[in-house]
Nucleic acid binder design. Structure first.
Length: 804
DNA sequence: TATAGTACATTTTTT
DNA sequence: ATGTACTATA
């Protein structure tokens, strides 16, 4: 699909020739790009050229001289989005993109706090905890407070603390209703004290600290509010409360905030995103101009018809309809499958056919609602020898061996980092057992000092080993003085014994490979950041007596990494390469699986597909209980978010869209009998093409499916085939099926058939009982005969033979 | 201290 | 079914 040129795209309020920049924008895009300098909201539909508008807007502001690079802030959620913005901007304009504040919320906060660490009450070398680090920190606090881990589940407490912070609450602000929350607030306080002591901050703290400093320091606030003439926020529908408050701090009376988002693509409520921020923004910032980008440049008409019809079932929308000028394209194909195994097989064959027809494998995506679904598909692809790539899973910097290596590096930087200390003090083992560590932690607790400082308090053999560990770290620190980052890491890997340890492990080869990869990553980081002989400090702003007028590198061809070499605002001091690398590792967890190179089919959850697009998309597992997920069905908001998720999935496809569901599916080691997703019923028939005959007996739509599912004893649309182990499901207060019908279903046991049972039919062959209804002469069964589809049979007439 | 066995949970995810 | 986290045992 091409972007047709717009001949009218030439008018800009400037003497500079901006024609090249604005050429090809449609009227709405042009209006968005050339908006006056005041708060505005852009409702950017999927595939409407949102990133292009954002980057062109910045380029246009710069080119027309309305703002200098230092006056622009652009915030994103992911490093990937930030990078892409910088790359595209760099391609549009020969500007030093590094002078601009383009980055993730967390990256920009880091930049801010590095410059103002003193005012923020942080240590100069503060390190950043990722979620795993912060969880183990919480665990230590709970232990130190002698609390019951059953009553205060570390995961939940960590979640509680993060949520408090994301609501802008300090321990003292927590509303206390009962003893439990009282205690939780106390844990929060203790956790906070511990972080303070260790010189570490968690992700939420980066934002909250920044917000508080801006709120409380009028000088600083006025400075930044004056500085940023333009703030652009990407994916605004994903902002949480704190991010919105944060934004309000940086936006001064003369700041033009441009919020870009799509309420229909809000799929992160579960992690605190507040779609309501969009309407709050419109009201509180007195937005005069709301621009809707509804023209879609990605997909053909049938795909958009499906998307529009589906999302129309949601209430509480800001309202938006996607349109295209590319024609209807091919119909959306729908496939019913007998089992998840068959579904995988079908997807695979269809994908192979597309590939043989000339479509690159990486242009084919297989999407699913939950990660567990990938397994069947993976094994099918694996057995067929088709290259594929799975997104998600362990990220590079989260791998155990990498975390171990980073812990050593962090101790070299800051030996009071107790989290890192505990992680590697006995890894590889050096005779320091649980007893010794217990004593060490007790001593540290009593004196309020770090573990490092408390080593002397432990006697005996354990104490000696602890002293040996401290000496090891000291030794590494001394020996790596003046070495390059690469040399530091290599030295540490050997000196710590990590390499030797993994050499003797049977599964160690991969881990050593990863550790080597760490060296490579550090090398790349150094090159990218411009460390080395002519390191260049970046200007933060013109604040303070010691501010630096930094020399600018004449040209920056490559996209810079999101971690900045931010100098201290007063002294101009910058971080050591090691410290900067550690920050980088915390803020950017790296790729999950760098199986780059090969042309492979892309497998991922619908969530991780957001923002991506493919020539062909398969949405699999469209079954009640799975998609929409059963856990989301308890309230209307949950269902609407599932529907938005489906909307996101549909709008990923450029040319071909396939929807599939399966009658049975292996989940948690048990077979579930599913009915097709209600979302399929919400799509317009005119846009669809059923590849399999529509199942008989399901003609009356969802209500019928629902009742059938109910009778089979499960919740909304699916049931567990054998056993009653998963007793978690609770019946809704008002069952939609009359009690008499349920009683009838119970009596039906007389005929001896069971759901899930294999049977043989003279004409249709082998099949599986999917549904049982009625009793006595009225007893009927829905049997799935695979190739012949599912049939409803009267048990008193049809001759069904059980197979075992 | 390492390994084997058991209990347990299992939507979605970025920083 | 499968992976993880924790406990019991050599």
């Amino acid at each position: 699909m091409q972007f047709p040129d717009d001949p009218e795209a030439e008018r800009a309020p400037s003497l500079v020739d901006t024609g090249a920049l604005l050429r090809g924008l449609n009227p709405e895009q042009l209006a968005a790009v050339t908006l006056p300098a005041e708060p505005a909201l852009i409702l950017a539909g999927a595939g409407s050229g949102k990133t292009r508008v954002l980057t062109t807007r910045i380029a246009w502001l710069l080119q027309t001289g309305q703002v200098s690079p230092g006056g622009v802030m652009a915030v994103t959620f992911t490093n990937k989005a930030a990078k892409e913005m910088m790359t595209r901007l760099g391609a549009m304009l020969p500007v030093n993109v590094r002078g601009m504040w383009i980055g993730t919320f967390h990256g920009l906060c880091n930049r801010f706090l590095r410059a103002h660490w003193k005012q923020a009450g942080l240590s100069q070398t503060f390190q950043i905890l990722d979620s795993g680090d912060s969880l183990s920190a919480v665990k230590r606090v709970i232990k130190a407070m002698n609390l019951d881990e059953e009553r205060f589940v570390p995961k939940q407490v960590a979640w509680f603390i993060a949520s408090c912070k994301e609501d802008g609450m300090r321990p003292g602000d927590v509303p206390v209703h009962d003893g439990q929350t009282q205690k939780m607030a106390e844990i929060y306080q203790a956790y906070q004290d511990q972080c303070e002591r260790e010189g570490v901050v968690d992700f939420a703290e980066l934002l909250l600290r920044t917000y508080e400093l801006m709120r409380d320091d009028a000088m600083l606030r006025e400075h930044y509010q004056r500085r940023f003439r333009h703030i652009l926020v990407d994916e605004f529908q994903d902002t949480n409360r704190l991010q919105y408050l944060w934004l309000k701090m940086f936006a001064g009376p003369h700041t033009a905030v441009l919020a870009v988002g799509d309420d229909d693509q809000s799929i992160y409520a579960f992690r605190g995103a507040q779609v309501g921020n969009m309407s709050d923004f419109e009201r509180e910032f007195r937005v005069k101009k709301v621009i809707k980008l509804e023209r879609n440049y990605r997909s053909y008409g049938n795909i958009l018809d499906a998307a529009n019809a589906l999302i129309a079932h949601n209430s509480r929308r800001l309202g938006k309809n996607l349109r295209t000028e590319s024609g209807p394209g091919e119909p959306v194909r729908v496939q019913e499958n007998a089992s998840d195994f068959n579904e995988a097989q079908w997807v695979l064959e269809e994908a192979q056919q597309l590939h043989r027809g000339g479509m690159a494998r990486h242009e084919i995506a297989i999407l699913y609602r939950s990660n567990a679904q990938s397994r069947v598909i993976e094994s099918a692809l694996f057995n067929a020898g088709i290259p594929y790539r799975v997104y998600g899973g362990m990220r590079f910097f989260e791998r155990a061996e990498i975390k171990h290596a980073l812990a050593y590096l962090r101790l070299i930087e800051n030996c009071h980092d107790d989290t890192s200390y505990l992680r590697v003090v006995n890894f590889p083992t050096r005779g320091i057992g649980a007893r010794t560590l217990e004593q060490l932690q007790d001593a540290a607790r009593q004196t309020g000092r770090s573990l490092w400082q408390s080593v002397g308090a432990v006697g005996g053999k354990g104490g000696a080993n602890l002293a040996g560990f401290n000496a090891l770290i000291d030794g590494m620190r001394n020996e790596t003085q003046g070495l390059t980052l690469r040399e530091i890491i290599e030295h540490m890997l050997h000196r710590s014994g990590l390499i030797d340890f993994y050499r003797t492990e049977k599964e160690g080869a991969d881990r050593i490979e990863n550790l080597e990869e760490l060296v490579t990553a550090a090398e790349a980081f150094v090159t990218q950041e411009g460390f080395g002989k002519d390191a260049v400090a970046l200007p933060v702003d013109e604040l303070g007596p010691g501010s630096i007028a930094a020399p600018r590198s004449p040209d920056v061809p490559e996209a810079p990494a999101p971690v900045d070499l931010t100098p201290d605002a007063e002294t101009g001091e910058i971080m050591s390469p090691l410290a900067a690398f550690l920050t980088h590792a915390a803020l950017e967890a790296g790729d999950n699986q760098a199986q780059a190179g090969q042309d492979a089919i892309q497998l991922m959850t619908v969530h991780s597909a957001k923002g991506l697009e493919f020539d062909a998309v398969f949405i699999t597992g469209l079954e009640e209980g799975l998609f929409p997920h059963e856990n989301a069905l308890s309230d209307a908001d949950g269902l609407e978010e599932e529907r938005r998720l489906m909307y996101v999935a549909i709008t990923r496809a450029r040319q071909r869209l396939y929807l599939s569901f399966s009658q049975t599916r292996m989940l948690h080691g048990q077979t579930r009998y599913n009915v097709k997703s209600r979302f399929l019923d919400e799509l317009p028939e005119s846009a669809l093409k059923w590849l399999t005959p529509r199942t008989q007996g399901f003609g009356s739509g969802f209500a019928r499916d629902y009742q059938a599912a109910w009778q089979r004893g499960s919740g909304l649309g699916s049931m567990v085939g054998a056993g009653r182990r998963n007793a978690g499901w609770q019946a809704p207060a008002e069952p939609p099926v009359p009690a008499a019908m349920k009683a009838a279903a119970a009596e039906a046991a007389g005929h001896g058939f069971k759901v899930g049972q294999s049977v043989f039919h003279a004409k249709f062959g082998e099949g599986v009982v999917v549904t049982l209804e009625g009793s006595g002469p009225d007893a009927r069964a829905q049997v799935n005969f695979g190739r012949h589809g599912a049939k409803w049979l009267a048990l008193s007439i049809a001759k069904l033979t059980p197979i075992d």
